[in-house]
Computed example of a mutant assay.
Amino acid sequence: MNVPSLKKPLIFVGPPCSGVSLISNIVFHHPALCWLDENFEKHPTSNFQHKLFKFTSKWRSKSNDYPTNSLMSALANDFSPTPTEATLFWDLMTRDDVDFYRGFARGKLASPMEISEISKILEARVASTEKERLALRFTGPARLCYLQSLFPDAKFVHVTRDPASTVNSIISSQEWEFQGKSMLWWRGAYSLQELAQYDLLRQHAVAGTAFQLNKLLQTTRQEIEEVNADLLTVNYEDFVANPQQVLLNLLEFAELDPDLNVGRALKRSEIRCSNKVLKMPATDINTVYTWCPAP
């Protein structure tokens, strides 16, 4: 077997509720890709967990071969791993001022020690699972400066969605009630003027959430320009309208051959139309676009 490398890792980024998890989960069915699961997050250096992943991840693809409501499909799904962002791993491996839980990490670069230690663990993961490429996913701040300093030849996929639809989905989630509904959830990129502005919005869930979403999108655009990232932007509405073509374009960008497993995963996925925003009150829609204009 060739010496493992982290050449051209595929990294998905995007705001929460933008479709980044759905699209990446489908692409992660590609047999060439090695991704991270909950067991890796808990035991990132365990060779046993890597080998277990190699076996159980096959069940994830196998589940697409069985009828949707069959017992075998249910068993395959129950016993197969699912992709995760592995936030605990990234927080453990990075210094205090690089926060993969709530931080923007604006302008932060990986230190030589971080590059060495993180690469060593991820190379072992790829080698143990006998995959060709590493694949990662991050929702929230893109952290492109840090990630590209860690993976100079990374191929990034930035998933975006209509701001009103995104805000509507975010504030409908139970987690947001205890996260950013009435406080700034992501930290480290706001000016004093922006902090003062948010104080006037914090009691208005729609406006406050749109304000935070705008900051995510704004900082990602800035980072794309700063690092000149090899990046493909995927619009969720385009994906809903023509998922097969969008996936083909994505795989071509990623330098991955079309694969039946990805196609089968697409057919089994619940792709929801993003026009739920039409159910929002007109005043809320206007509020979203006031604080987070559509690009």
Rank of each mutant, 00 (worst) to 15 (best):
F40P: 02
H43G: 01
I118K: 04
N275F: 10
D284F: 02
A210Q: 07
K276V: 08
D259H: 07
Y198F: 15
Q174A: 07
Q245Y: 01
A189I: 01
R106V: 12
V126W: 00
T166C: 15
P152I: 15
L250I: 09
Q218C: 02
S21A: 00
C145G: 04
P258C: 05
A105C: 10
Q212M: 13
S70E: 03
L231Y: 01
L33R: 00
G208D: 08
P152A: 15
T290G: 01
K8T: 15
L217C: 07
T287D: 02
L260V: 15
P141Q: 11
T219S: 02
K181D: 11
L200K: 13
A105K: 13
S165D: 14
F138E: 05
A254S: 04
Q212E: 04
I118M: 12
W291A: 01
T82F: 00
F239S: 07
A127N: 13
G107R: 04
Q212H: 03
L232S: 05
Q49Y: 01
T233A: 14
V13E: 11
M93K: 11
W186L: 12
F40K: 10
K51V: 09
K181Y: 03
A105H: 12
P31N: 09
Y190K: 07
A229R: 04
M113S: 01
F151W: 03
F48S: 13
F253C: 14
L216W: 07
G14Q: 13
A32R: 13
A74T: 13
P67F: 06
P15S: 14
K267E: 10
Q174M: 09
A154K: 05
C34T: 10
P258Y: 00
K62M: 12
K8R: 13
R137G: 10
T220H: 01
F53T: 09
F89P: 11
E130D: 11
T287M: 08
R268Y: 08
A294Q: 04
R221C: 01
S5P: 15
Q245E: 06
L200E: 12
S182N: 12
S274E: 08
A241V: 13
F156I: 14
Q212D: 01
A127G: 08
L192R: 01
R143T: 14
T209G: 03
T219Q: 06
A32F: 15
S119P: 15
K279P: 00
R137P: 04
H50E: 00
A105Y: 08
F253H: 10
Q193V: 11
Q148P: 03
C292W: 05
N275D: 15
